[in-house]
Design a protein around this nucleic acid. Sequence first.
DNA 1: TTCAAGTTGGACGGTTTTTGTCCCACTCAA
DNA 2: TTGAGTGGGACAAAAACCGTCCAACTTGAA
Lengths: 347, 347
Amino acid sequence: MDPLTEAKKKLMPEMTDLLTKRYQILQTIQMEEPIGRRTLSELAGMTERDIRKETDLLRGQQLIEAKTAGMAISPQGIEVLEALKEFMREMSGLSNMEKQLKAILGISQVLILPQDSDDIPAVKTKIGKEAARLLEMKFPLHKKIAVTGGSTMAAISKEISSDKRDRSLQFIAARGGLGEDVLHQANTIASLFAEKTGGAVKTLYLPDHLSAEAYEMMMREPVIKEMMDLYDETDVVVHGIGNAEEIALHRKSSPEEVEMIRKGGAVSEAFGYYFDNEGNVVYRIRTAGIQMEQVQKAKAILAVAGGRSKAKAILSYFNIAPRQTVLVTDEGAARKIIELTTKQEEF
Amino acid sequence: MDPLTEAKKKLMPEMTDLLTKRYQILQTIQMEEPIGRRTLSELAGMTERDIRKETDLLRGQQLIEAKTAGMAISPQGIEVLEALKEFMREMSGLSNMEKQLKAILGISQVLILPQDSDDIPAVKTKIGKEAARLLEMKFPLHKKIAVTGGSTMAAISKEISSDKRDRSLQFIAARGGLGEDVLHQANTIASLFAEKTGGAVKTLYLPDHLSAEAYEMMMREPVIKEMMDLYDETDVVVHGIGNAEEIALHRKSSPEEVEMIRKGGAVSEAFGYYFDNEGNVVYRIRTAGIQMEQVQKAKAILAVAGGRSKAKAILSYFNIAPRQTVLVTDEGAARKIIELTTKQEEF
DNA sequence: TTCAAGTTGGACGGTTTTTGTCCCACTCAA
DNA sequence: TTGAGTGGGACAAAAACCGTCCAACTTGAA
């Protein structure tokens, strides 16, 4: 930390807490607007009185506006949040946590966003926004981009800016269909990316749960083979990380599949692979999709997952995640990951 | 002001006052140590309770130590003061006041130090220190340095560091003797400078109040003429600015001199010249010394004067001060000068 | 040595501010 | 229309703050 800030802290020890508190309130208001005192106090974990005092001040500073429907952030408030973003990352230790995660997960870049998407759904939007920014930076160099499905991936697609259109981009669905949830399927997401950027899209429509024979047969089809070749040429992979149980329940999995997943001690899921705590592949869905070996070859990989409930899954997957993977997550997940790993060290 | 600080101010409006208050207290403690609560509260213009609260905090932060003789600053406290120096100059508007003074006085560099040497004598030490730093910067390029007398000049001589000794420096007393006050005479001060730097010194011992005939005679003496030639070659002039009345009273001035000074409306004094509010020379002491024309030719001029009581004198002198003059002063004088000039504009 | 001035830390009651907790009138979407 | 949610007002209890002493001590001068 720079000596000036250090000195200020010495002279005003209250500063850190105050700044953090108000920043967090302002941030939560931005995400949940319009919001009232009582709801806000629950989200922020403070008493209503405290919230009231601080919001009165923020209103006095014209950083928020109090309408009848609730409080909302003002343009000035947004500016303040923006100006303090980097500083708060440093101050609240996010920057430091990023370093720790890099070491724990064995990768070279981690981005942590404040708060926990388990508590505040809007944090997912922030994750999506930052992931979108990171992805956009790859566009000039890397054109073939494989994407998976999931709500997190959907959040990214929403935040891709349509400003920098690039017709040479090609988005590839990393997976076949996933049963019913159309909005969050890889195919849908890939199409959304393509639409926003003006690029092309390659989709892969296949039932999720094929019999062994049907699977073999399909793999020999020219359309499918073409996809498999595309996976080989993939430059960038963008994917979410799922909780094994959640996903298994959510999908129409056959009883024997669920059994495999349970018995194998699967914790995480990515690209249709299920991994246990040590990162071993416990099970794999028999659907066409990108292979782990093909992911390894990608020049850039963006793994996106947030919320403390995803901590175990993230840890599990990163046992075998390629080195070049970049993780975008949130404070909730990061804290939990650090907690889990430091606890293990105690034993 | 940088956007980050701006944003912090928005989020913590209390910051400015708090920081200023504590900084000022810490600063005063440094200058007046050891000092007690009551004395400190008078100097800082705060209630004893307030001082107590803040000093308790500062002690908690280990920035000051409370001994039985009073409170004193700790090494850490000095570090904090040092680290915040520039920031506080900006924050407290000193930086801005410097700009204003430059415009008002028509010069290109002004340095203002916090507080008022009329209230806190130790501020004079700070002024001396900064002036000494500025002067030292000239040493490598400019070797012939003329200095005047006065308590402010004495303060500078005390703060010249003996680290960077330079035997090629030559210090010249800008004036002959000044009656009794030996310690603050130009001759003494010049010798002090020379001693600290290892340089040479040229002194000029002459009675202050000569008759017209004696004066003419002396000016023809070779020793004196030599000095006058030296003045022509002077690179740097360092001088104080005095209040006309004060100086006239302090010196053993003849009644007719006092009369001249009074009638002429003299306000300031420098180099033995008395100036009125418009900068006209009202009277000049008949002693050998540097001429105003010779001062004009100097490459660098350092004018040093602090305390709100000097404000009028400073304003008066700067009517005719050479452009290349640099002023070192304090907050008290600066505020008063700005107050005086903006009031005039109202009429 | 004595004394006066100045120091810190402790104490305490009156005063102000803060805090927790209601209530009310209102909005807005269902 | 209803009901959940909103901001603002209000108020008593609790806490913090403030002004003001005092006692014990140090220190430097007389």
